[in-house]
Amino acid sequence: MLSLTHSLRSLAIAGEAIPSNYKYQAVRWRKPRWVPKAKSKIFKVPERPVIPEEEKLELMRLYNNYRTKVKSLRSYLVAKHCTKFQASEDPEEQRRLFEEDLQHCIKMNNEWNEKQRIFREQAMTEELEANLSYARKRLEDELIKQEEKIKAIEEIVQKQKEAAKNFILPENIDEAIDKALENPVDYNFAITLNGEKIIGYYNHKVGDKNENVVKQ
């Protein structure tokens, strides 16, 4: 648009303002279409080329011959090369070729299927075998694990039975109480660096001479 207005200005034609929505056709004009013929050229009629009658007749003859020859050549080439015609040539032959091709394809496919079937069956048996052996191994492992578990439990039970001999039961509770009262144990003592026990004053029993007594 900008270049157009510029060129218009350069032609000194654009007197009025150009509306912005006006559409211009891009043509390589020396002169815009609406500018009339130059005044000096108004009555000028361009000369028509004059072809002599002989030459005209000769050219007509040549053109007729040429067109005939080219037409025949063209029709020959079309018959030979045109893809449309070639496709529709002899339907019986086309059908036979198609059938042959189809049979060949079916045969190839069957062969391949047979090969694949053998391969597939072998692969399937191998897979089944592998799965079975894996299952068996898992079962064995599971059994071993259970055995180990039972063994561990039995050990615990054995230990507890051993320990059960020292348990305090209702039958021997009086005896245990008497024993405890007879042998009071006092942990309220301190130890020196030499390993001597220093028992507290209040817990000191009369008669123990070996131990140091300190008033707290």
Binding site: L77, V78, K80, H81, C82
Partner: peptide, 8 residues
């Protein structure tokens, strides 16, 4: 050229 003239 032959091919293309043959194809119109």
């Amino acid at each position: 050229i032959r091919y293309w003239i043959g194809n119109g």
